[in-house]
């Protein structure tokens, strides 16, 4: 097979640059294979994250020719001729080379009120397949955080990170809201605390999802519609005004279950 030139970003928080590695390309290889071969030979300290190498764990996220993708699921023979650029995910602070600090995502995950289930009857719950299927789609998520990376709300606007959970956590919240056992109401939470309104549904999250989850159509838009019902319904608003009621706060409507 012919040689291929890999333009790989090397560096850390103090700066970095592209380095070129020209290496033989074998049949059917994926980008991660080539990275591994560079590690084993020319650059043993080339930092990259990976675990399963089968598209199941979501560790090896990077940007290949500018597109957020999993390195283990991107076959070399599908890329156009010429040098292949590999850069770290842009949205998160760099640690070194292709490795970024994704703790933003873990911080957001920790804020979400978990499932508050109905009490379990003797012998376990009875749930119908049609009632679990919607949430099951979202639970396919492998937490590669490519949707978070591509989302311009935080990719291009650092200051929004404090107020915006990102697509990964919108599908998490949608999953909980559609779980037939759940008794929490996270609509105010997702609007007020998670910044659902920042999303302008440009659908890049759906485009990059390696699991093919319909993030926008099946999670974000249904959440927006649910928020409309809770917040922007003029009749309900009028009703509250007449009865001098106030809306439940996000913390009242959705609580973290006891350990």
């Amino acid at each position: 097979m012919a040689d291929v030139t890999m333009k790989i970003w090397r560096g850390d928080a103090s700066g970095g640059e592209f380095q070129n590695y020209t290496i033989e390309q074998n049949d059917n290889e994926v980008v991660l294979d080539v990275i591994h071969r560079i590690q084993a030979t020319e650059a043993p300290d080339l930092a990259c994250r990976w675990n399963c190498k089968a598209g199941k764990c979501g560790s090896c996220s990077a940007e290949i020719n500018g597109k957020p993708r999993l390195m283990c699921m991107t076959r070399m023979d599908t890329l156009p001729e010429g040098p292949v650029t590999v850069t770290p995910m842009k949205t998160f602070p760099i640690i070194r080379d292709l490795v970024t600090d994704v703790s933003f995502n873990y911080a957001m995950a920790a804020k979400i009120p978990a499932l508050l289930p109905k009490p379990m009857p003797e012998g376990g719950y009875r749930l119908m397949q049609e009632d679990v299927e919607r949430s099951q789609e979202f639970r396919k998520c492998i937490e590669c955080f490519l949707c978070q990376d591509v989302c311009h709300v935080i990719r291009d606007h650092e200051d929004n990170k404090a107020n915006y959970a990102g697509p990964r956590f919108f599908i998490r919240i949608a999953e909980l809201e559609m779980n037939p056992l759940d008794t929490n109401d996270r609509r105010e939470f997702v609007r007020e605390d998670m910044g659902l309104g920042y999303c302008n549904i440009t659908k890049c999250c759906t485009e990059v999802c390696p699991e093919g989850i319909h993030i926008t159509d099946n999670a974000i838009i249904p959440l927006k519609e649910r928020v409309v019902a809770a917040n922007y319904d003029p009749v309900a608003w009028l009703g509250r005004k007449i009865r001098r009621q106030t809306k439940k706060t996000s913390a009242e409507a959705a609580v973290q279950p006891a350990p």
Binding site: A114, L115, M120, G124, Y125, R126, Q129, V132, N179, L181
Partner: peptide, 19 residues
């Protein structure tokens, strides 16, 4: 296994709604 459902796991179901 049953306990996992209280924590959010969603298994495939039988026709009568069991796991």
């Amino acid at each position: 296994v049953l306990e996992l459902e209280q924590w959010g796991a969603l298994f495939d179901r039988t026709k009568d709604g069991k796991i």
